[in-house]
């Protein structure tokens, strides 16, 4: 049997230096790929392995010798002779401050690795003062561009607000949103082509929203859940996960992941079932799967209830 071999045109190799270590990477590779080759890791939030980098979070910034400002490692292509520093004072300062800014304005409690990075960079989000009370539901969505309530400075403003629970499948908890644009890109032109959500408003009041902030069932949403798949902070989560976290029963250490093939149609998408106490609690898809690239439809993502219909007699 012949196995198809994907062929790409050969790419020239360029020499770059990462923290003093020379490395050869294909032309057009990003600084992050060059870093990975030398074993240097960059913290990332808005980077998604299945999406075009948006470089909005700026946490992966590195110092490129001779450049006026820091460069986002996730998206900046390497250039021949480029010398990159990933642990200079400027880089550490920028990463620490960005973590502080995000940590002080967003609930990062469910962001993987956030705590670890905070400790590593010695970030202290509490230095900006006590957190302001969460905004009432809908208040942030009604804000107008170009104006804001003058702050007193007594509290640090946040994006926190009650979670939006308007359907049985997933929850949008925008108090945890760092505005990485990944859900918008996954819903829109990069994957799903549904365009149910966009970024609305401006500046600190910018938020991910449906048109006129209508509830999801009234929007174009098709419940593919591909936005949940890419969300880096847990702002978007399965209703099952959200409820279990609220109850305090969510425990990833007790969960088992099983990757299998979706049985609904003939496409053959891989689904990874996350099982806790013999109940499916969420479904993801492997990002390196050539069929799905991490994407599913409503059936693969949410149509698992029949599996666990048990007789309770």
């Amino acid at each position: 049997m012949n196995t198809p071999v994907p062929l790409a045109p050969p790419r020239r190799l360029v020499d770059v230096t990462v923290d003093g270590q020379e490395v050869r990477v294909p032309e057009g590779a990003t600084i992050m790929q060059a870093c990975a080759q030398t074993g240097v890791s960059c913290p990332t939030l808005c980077y998604g392995d299945t999406l075009t980098p948006k470089n909005a979070c700026r946490i992966c910034v590195v110092e490129v010798e001779g450049a006026r400002t820091l460069a986002p490692a996730c998206s900046r292509p390497v250039e021949p002779g480029m010398a990159v520093r990933t642990d200079s004072d400027r880089v550490r300062h920028a990463r620490r401050t960005v973590l502080e800014l995000l940590g002080s304005s967003v609930d990062l409690s469910t962001t993987p690795q956030a705590q670890e990075w905070m400790e590593h960079y010695d970030a202290r989000p509490e230095r900006f003062g006590p957190r302001a009370a969460p905004a009432p539901m809908g208040e942030r969505d009604a804000r107008r561009a170009g104006e804001h309530e003058p702050p007193t400075g007594a509290v640090a403003e946040t994006v926190e607000q009650p979670a939006k629970i308007d359907n049985d499948l997933y929850v949008r908890d925008y108090g945890k949103c760092i505005l990485c644009y990944k859900c918008v890109d996954a819903c829109g032109e990069q994957w799903q082509n549904t365009f149910a959500i966009g970024v609305a408003g401006r500046g600190f009041d910018a938020r991910v929203s449906t048109e006129h902030d209508v509830a999801l069932p009234d929007s174009a949403c098709v419940y593919c859940g591909n936005c949940i798949e890419v969300c880096p902070t847990g702002a978007l989560s399965f209703k099952s996960e959200f409820d279990m976290r609220a109850e305090g029963t969510w425990d990833e250490s007790r969960q088992r992941q099983t990757t299998t093939v979706c049985t609904y149609c003939g496409v053959g998408c891989n689904v990874t079932l996350h099982v806790q106490d013999n109940e499916i609690v969420k479904v993801t898809s492997p990002h390196d799967n050539p069929v799905t690239h991490g994407n599913l439809c409503i059936k693969g993502r949410f149509g698992f209830q029949h599996v666990q219909q048990r007789r309770h007699d």
Partner: peptide, 8 residues
Amino acid sequence: DESCGQCA
């Protein structure tokens, strides 16, 4: 007021 809100 005038920040676009794109980068953190």
